[in-house]
């Protein structure tokens, strides 16, 4: 059997990759995909820890993370569309109207 810590380290690595994507990339869609990677890294961690504790609650959490992720993707992509319509760009750096 694979130790649980392997799964946790993998989850951490995927999460870090997701964070790097959000920090480094400026394309809103890619930033969004990186967020999905982060969400699923957390899903993996939740299930792995749930397995270590012998409980199913971790999986229920994953279920809720998925539904919230779906809602987030729907609203977020709609916002990207609306932003693109008014500003004709989806570069995060160029959407700076609200910046002080």
């Amino acid at each position: 059997m694979t130790p649980v810590s392997y799964y946790l380290v993998l989850g951490a690595a995927l999460f870090a990759i997701g964070v790097a994507g959000v920090v480094i990339r400026r394309n809103l869609i890619v930033i969004f995909m990186s967020i999905e990677v982060m969400l699923n890294a957390v899903n993996l961690t939740l299930v792995a820890l749930g397995r270590a504790l012998g409980s199913t609650d971790g999986q229920v959490m994953v279920f809720f993370v998925m539904t919230v992720g779906a809602a987030e993707a729907a609203v977020g992509l709609a916002l990207i569309l609306a932003a693109f319509r008014s500003r004709h760009t989806i570069k995060a750096d160029e959407l700076n109207l609200m910046r002080w």
């Binding site: 059997m1 130790p3 649980v4 810590s5 946790l8 380290v9 989850g11 951490a12 999460f15 870090a16 792995a48 820890l49 397995r51 270590a52 012998g54």
Partner: peptide, 15 residues
């Protein structure tokens, strides 16, 4: 994260 997780319990109990 790595420092935190490497010390996690080893080997899941049988399901």
């Amino acid at each position: 994260l790595f420092a935190f997780f490497v010390r996690a319990p080893v080997g899941p109990p049988p399901a």
